[in-house]
């Protein structure tokens, strides 16, 4: 038998209810896009054409929930970023996948070109004076830090990470898949140990739904979002339903006009 002769199938797609088989097929298509986005990131223009990007793709309820909870934990560490972390955690839950992109050279192997981005100097002294090194080989083994990121970082490398993120976003945009980059998602991913060789990570929320989960956000979005609205509706309707109780098999409520 020709090996392709049974090649046939039916695939139904529907984004509701979430995580139903029809929705999982849709999510799988988004995940495939996210994988292509990673390739876009790797082929982005970079100083000297040197590989410096690592990626991590997260999808599925458990992975996204863990990431969102880490973001919510960060919400209570800095007043200025409280809402950012809370709102963007909702976006992660509402997404189909998260692509984390990190630069593994921005701390350990700088570009060494004296570009000026890190410290405004025509050499790399601002960077090397602030990191332990021997003959310019940076010792990164002391991972204790008072800040989430052990800066300063090589600005040229960080800039290159921007190009990688840009190409990933461009590819998503070209396929009409919604994607936006976030500091908060990257910071939570870093805290969870993803992209382990990268000192700075950008988190890209990726979704293929009717409504882009990352834009047109309501005030107090962590309290007023689709997941909450649906859950509260369940709570409200069930109670509202059980109070006017009757046996539908024997009687039905009549309009007043009908009763007369």
């Amino acid at each position: 038998m020709d090996k392709y002769s049974p090649f046939t199938g039916r695939e139904h797609y529907h984004e509701w209810p979430p995580y139903s088989p029809s929705d999982l097929r849709r999510k799988e298509a988004v995940v495939q896009t996210a994988r292509q986005m990673l390739i876009g990131a790797l082929t982005a223009p970079m100083a000297g054409g040197v590989s410096q990007i690592e990626g991590q793709l997260l999808y599925g309820k458990d992975e996204l929930e863990a990431l969102a909870r880490k973001m919510e934990a960060f919400a209570y560490e800095n007043d200025r970023t409280e809402e950012i972390y809370k709102y963007e955690a909702v976006m992660v839950r509402d997404s189909d996948a998260v692509l984390l992109l990190g630069d593994y050279r921005c701390l350990e192997t700088p570009l060494d070109v004296g570009c000026g981005l890190c410290g405004g100097r025509p050499d790399c002294s601002f960077f090397y004076e602030r990191h332990p090194n021997r003959f310019g080989m940076v010792d990164t083994t002391d991972r204790r830090s008072d800040t989430p990121i052990r800066g300063p970082l090589c600005g040229a490398r960080v800039n290159d990470l921007g190009y990688a993120v840009g190409s990933a976003l461009w590819l998503a945009s070209s396929l009409f898949v919604d994607a936006r980059p976030f500091m908060s998602v990257g910071m939570a991913g870093k805290a969870l140990g993803f992209c382990p060789d990268s000192e700075i990570i950008v988190g890209i929320i990726v979704a293929g739904k009717a409504k882009n989960p990352c834009v047109d956000i309501f005030p107090d979005y962590h309290l007023f979002n689709m997941e909450k609205v649906v859950d509260v509706s369940r709570k409200q309707f069930i109670t509202a339903r059980i109070v006017p109780s009757y046996d539908y098999r024997k009687w039905r409520p009549q309009n007043k006009v009908e009763e007369e």
Partner: peptide, 30 residues
């Protein structure tokens, strides 16, 4: 107090803005 110029650009820089600039330049090239 200490802003200056490197061999290519000025600094010091906010890294998240550096990322923004990289993303935008990438989109121009794309």
């Amino acid at each position: 107090r200490n802003g200056g110029t490197g061999q290519l650009w000025g600094g010091p820089s906010c890294n998240w803005k550096v990322l923004d600039f990289g993303i935008a330049c990438d989109w121009a090239a794309a």
